[in-house]
Design a protein around this nucleic acid. Sequence first.
DNA 1: GTGATTATCGCCCTCTGCTGGCTCGTT
DNA 2: AAACGAGCCAGCAGAGGGCGATAATCAC
Length: 697
Amino acid sequence: MAATEISVLSEQFTKIKELELMPEKGLKEEEKDEVCREKDHQSPSELEAACTSGAPQDSVLEEEVEPVPATSEESEKHILTLQTVHFTSEAVELQDMSLLSIQQQDGVQVVVQQAGPGLLWLEEGPRQSLQQYVAISIQQELYSLQEMEMLQFHAVEENVMVANEDSKLAVSLAESAGLIKEGQEKNQLAERTKEPLSFVETMSGDERSDEIVLTISNLNGEEQEDQPTAGQADVEKAKSTKNQRKTKGAKRTFHCDVCMFTSSRMSSFNRHMKTHTNEKPHLCHLCLKTFRTVTLLRNHVNTHTGTRPYKCNDCNMAFVTSGELVRHRRYKHTHEKPFKCSMCKYASVEASKLKRHVRSHTGERPFQCCQCSYASRDTYKLKRHMRTHSGEKPYECHICHTRFTQSGTMKIHILQKHSENVPKYQCPHCATIIARKSDLRVHMRNLHAYSAAELKCRYCSAVFHERYALIQHQKTHKNEKRFKCEHCSYACKQERHMTAHIRTHTGEKPFTCLSCNKCFRQKQLLNVHFRKYHDANFIPTVYRCCKCGKGFSRWSNMHRHSEKCGSGEAKSAASGKGRRTRKRKQTMLREAMKGQKEAAKGWKEAANGDEAAAEEASIPKREQFPGEMLPGACGETTARVKEDVDEGVTCEMLLNMMDNSAGCTGSMILASAQLLGRPQETDNQGGWRRGNRDATW
DNA sequence: GTGATTATCGCCCTCTGCTGGCTCGTT
DNA sequence: AAACGAGCCAGCAGAGGGCGATAATCAC
């Protein structure tokens, strides 16, 4: 706290008037502004007080009160102008704790309380919670107290410079009151309490008016950085209130009534006052823009001429002002960062950057969006955020003209969409390559993060703590023939297959032909037998080579022959493989392709199937997979049909079964027709053409 | 009083990371 | 066909760097 000079005549007391509250931003937390809120209740008239009992009868209080902004945007600083009240010291009994109570017109009291020898307290305001004490010594010192209670002493020591002709005496109020030790710092005091702390700055007022300007600052409050300045200055007021206050015979102090500016130099003060006016006498002859100072004009003209006299020795940058060059060198070359964060290792070149950084520690968000609850820590983020409300997308891709709200988003877009050498990010834990780093992070979080909960395999008892490991493990169960025969090497994927297989070891044949008593292991085999030997309408299939026309009772024999003949049988299968590689864009096509896959797998599996059952049915396995599925055939149905075939059930058996089944679908018929190699006998909907069937069967 | 220096404000930028919708492949 | 998973992608915000401009202060 800068000491200020005051001039208080001996044997004079002063009364307080509240001169002005400095308007501030409305973003301050209310708890910081208790003092101000209290003051808000005070109207100018409230501050007009009259001496009550105990006050000298011959004293006349001259009260000048200026309006207090009645907003919640309280100031952390208050200017109290003390005007001398000319009553004599004899009129005041300097007894301990005597009071000079000043009754204000509307009932609000300003209590002038004598704290002790040499001290005068001024208790202000109607509420005891606000106790702005100003202790004034009879010996010309002026002090302040926020709290004077012994046990919760919150007053802040403030050196009050006494602008005396003979001496400037800085006396700590607390020291004077004997309540705190000499030299105790106000910061230490601040740490001792969480209650708002205030201190008083005293500034010498106009000599003739004997005004003393007190600035009460809330020590717990934050700095006034980034707070809006006072409202637009009233130029006339500024001119009329050139408070070139000075102390009696001492160093003059010039105080701006528009803002808090003070200066001991007239030139500085005058230069400052020009900031409150629109006076810009210096004209640029190139663009007719005007400036306040010659220096500003010169810098501006340099922007026209491109003159940048301050050149960096380490790079080709040049600047208009020397300050810019110094700062540039700190950023780019010397890396000198004088502003260091006390809470982390951050350091910055500029103080404003440190202030901005500190908000990341404090969580302060002074910049509130007017349309939503968002608040940002700096102006740019708020401005950027406002685009979400306006829909503005100022950044456009020069290639595809897509627009973006942020330049970074556009940059990523161009890099990923329009660049050739797109960077890829390899997952360190697996082979996955991901285009964006952030997505790689998501990948690692989802798949490679340790899971405290046990991730159990759905097929076995294995347990994992990483999702990726679980997935990889479960893939090992895919196509796994989990049912293994205890008596041989046979294995299959379905339990019913194993049941049928076990009968080959036990010899069990539960299905008996009613006509000849022949027994079979599977019902389907019995059905085939019955139709072949006991059904008069049964016509055996003859497979003919498409090249030479030779007939065969078994498809496998025909196929083996046709390969030697150069038949296109094998060729058609190869062309189907090519189609499998095409991208499936439509559901029908996908299903068709799936059916082809299943058919191909079924073919392979059939080659390793139950030869005994096949022999028993007298139909070779390969006859069951003559070619590809047509588009539209249900893959699942094909798989089911294939599985039955795998058990030794022939296509004819299946068709019979389906023919007698109410649940028979077109796709099932079509699948069976495919398996029989006679898709031409189905209609467009997969239905069996009864006539053809009858002719064949 | 004036120029130089320093401090401050404000703006824009980049880098970074998270989020959720979308798309596509798999189940 | 639907559910689900995973990568792609744009939107959005946090944090900090850099600089233009101007006011305040210092030195002469």
